[in-house]
Computed example of a mutant assay.
Amino acid sequence: MTSSVETRVSAGPHGPAPEGPPPRRAANALLGLGLLSALAALVVVALLSVWVGSRGISFNDTWRVLWSPDGSETSVIIHQYRIPRTVLGLLVGMALGLSGALMQALTRNPLADPGLLGVSLGASTGVVVAMGILGIGSVLGYVWFALLGAALASVLVYVLGSSGRKVATPDRLVVAGAAVTAVLYAFNSAVLLLNPRAFDQFRFWTVGALAGRRMDVVLAVLPFVVVGVAVALVLAPPLNALALGDQTGRALGVNVNRTRLLGAAAVMLLCGAATAAAGPIGFVGLVVPHVARFVVGPDQRWVMAYSMLLAPVLLIGADVLGRVLGAPGEIQVGIVTAFVGAPLFIALCRRRKLAML
Rank of each mutant, 00 (worst) to 15 (best):
L194E: 00
N195D: 15
G228A: 09
D246E: 15
V191N: 00
L239T: 11
L252E: 07
A241M: 14
D246F: 07
V226F: 10
L286E: 04
A220I: 01
F199A: 09
V287D: 01
G279F: 12
V225M: 01
G228Y: 00
L222K: 04
L262D: 12
Y185A: 10
A266K: 08
V221T: 09
A277S: 13
V287C: 13
V284P: 10
D246R: 14
A220W: 04
V217I: 15
A186T: 08
R250P: 10
P298L: 05
P298I: 08
A264C: 15
T259L: 11
P280A: 07
G272E: 04
P289D: 10
L270H: 12
A241D: 11
R250T: 15
A230I: 13
R260D: 01
R203V: 08
T259W: 13
D200I: 05
T206W: 04
N188L: 02
N195F: 04
V254R: 13
L262M: 15
P289C: 03
M268W: 07
D299E: 07
A274R: 07
F283C: 07
L270E: 05
S189F: 04
L261P: 11
L262Q: 13
L192I: 06
R301N: 11
R203C: 02
A211C: 01
F204D: 01
R213I: 05
L242E: 13
V221L: 05
R213C: 13
N188P: 01
L184Q: 04
T248E: 14
F202E: 00
Y185I: 02
R213V: 05
R213F: 09
V231E: 12
N255P: 13
R293K: 13
T259G: 12
P238Q: 05
D299R: 08
L242I: 12
P237G: 08
G297Q: 09
G263K: 11
P223W: 09
R250S: 14
V288G: 08
A277I: 01
V295H: 04
A182T: 07
R301V: 09
V221S: 12
W205Y: 15
T275E: 02
A190K: 02
A277G: 03
A190G: 01
A209K: 04
R213P: 14
D216L: 11
G212P: 14
F199S: 06
G272I: 03
G297N: 10
A265G: 15
C271I: 02
P223L: 03
L194W: 11
L219C: 05
A232G: 08
F224V: 01
A264L: 15
G297F: 10
T206C: 02
A277M: 03
D200R: 14
W205S: 05
G249M: 03
A278K: 13
M215F: 15
A264F: 02
T259V: 14
R214A: 09
V256H: 09
F294P: 01
R260C: 07
T275I: 12
M268A: 15
L219D: 12
T206F: 07
Q300T: 06
A277E: 02
N255M: 02
V256P: 14
V217D: 03
A251G: 15
A273M: 05
A265V: 10
A209Y: 06
L239Q: 13
P237V: 02
G249A: 15
G263H: 12
L184D: 00
Q201F: 11
N240W: 00
A292D: 07
P237W: 14
A241P: 09
